[in-house]
């Protein structure tokens, strides 16, 4: 199990489309993916779960990846966050 602190970079936060991109990517991997925020833990493969957080720009989350392909999964997920979820400037 690996945990990593992440900051949301895109200006409009983690709204529907970025959430969808995140969930889609996470679902490609076998590992379980959880996001910690406000002391709660939501399933990162559930779009409603991720959107419930309504994480704003600058929000700090902790990603938790656990499973056989956890390293690769986390690497890909972090890349997506750094690329502002593939969103053009909003």
């Amino acid at each position: 199990m690996i945990k990593k602190k992440v900051t949301i970079l895109n200006s409009s936060g983690l709204h529907a489309r970025p959430s969808a991109a995140l969930v889609k990517l996470a679902s490609k991997f076998k590992s379980d993916f959880y996001i910690h925020m406000y002391g709660y833990r939501v399933n990162g493969k559930s779009i409603l779960g991720v959107m419930t957080l309504a994480a704003e720009q600058g929000a700090e989350l902790v990603f938790e990846v656990d499973g056989p392909d956890e390293k690769e999964a986390l690497k890909n997920i972090l890349e997506l966050v750094e690329n502002k979820f593939g969103m053009q400037d909003e």
Binding site: A16, S46, L48, G49, M51, T52
Partner: peptide
Amino acid sequence: MSKHFMEIRGLGI
């Protein structure tokens, strides 16, 4: 936030 919404895979919310 998620009150009475549901995600159906392939269809969306």
